[in-house]
């Protein structure tokens, strides 16, 4: 009986934006706010309960779409999903040894930081390093994706996932250091 929001529409089309890794974040934000301005349950506070339910569903979908497209990794994973690459294909992907060794080295650096004399400075350096690597993989992804090179797109995507995980661990450590 309850009709759900149109889930067949992809997130890019929901915002009226082209399906692409490069995105105008300000434009995305503006369209997001415009859509919420129409669909948010607060706009239906006096409507029938059916319309209220519908508003919650639509508004939640728009939130989900915005969160997915807002950040590069989310966008890349979503593009892969749209292209029919499953989570399974991703996890079966063989990462080259050089990258894994680099990851291990970064991880060891991270673990050693709390013991250092100047941990604050060290963590800042490490965060910079990880962010640089991330940007490089984002460029690699964009190139592969635009060139229809699925193998390399998957590879860049998986590497971004590794780096993103490391980045949040490094940020957690930074938080701990700041809080004392």
């Amino acid at each position: 009986m309850t009709s759900s929001p149109d889930l067949t529409q992809d997130y890019f089309s929901l915002f009226g934006l082209p399906v692409s890794f490069a995105i105008d974040r300000d434009e995305l934000g503006a369209r997001y706010r415009r859509l919420q301005g129409e669909l948010h349950p607060d706009r239906y506070a006096n409507a029938s309960s059916y319309e209220q339910r519908l508003a919650v569903q639509h508004s939640a979908l728009v939130n989900q779409a915005y969160q997915t497209l807002r950040k590069p990794l989310g966008r890349a994973l979503y593009l892969m999903e749209l292209g029919g690459v499953s989570q399974n294909d991703m996890s079966r992907h063989q990462i080259d040894g050089g990258f894994l060794i680099m990851q291990m080295e970064l991880r060891e650096k991270l673990e050693a930081i709390p013991e250092l004399m100047e941990p604050d400075e060290a963590i800042e350096h490490l965060l910079d390093e990880i962010n640089q690597d991330l940007r490089a993989e984002q460029r690699a992804f964009e190139q592969a994706y635009n060139g229809n090179d699925t193998e390399h797109a998957i590879s860049a995507c998986v590497k971004m996932q590794y780096l993103d995980k490391l980045l949040s661990e490094a940020e957690r450590l930074e938080a701990k250091l700041i809080d004392g």
Binding site: D6, R31, S49
Partner: peptide
């Protein structure tokens, strides 16, 4: 009446989406 108006409500919601974007 609530059930009868559901399809109308859904169409209005879709219209809102289109208008929101058309307005940008």
């Amino acid at each position: 009446l609530g059930r009868l108006s559901e399809a109308f409500a859904a169409r209005r919601m879709d219209k809102s989406i289109h208008e929101a974007l058309a307005g940008v």
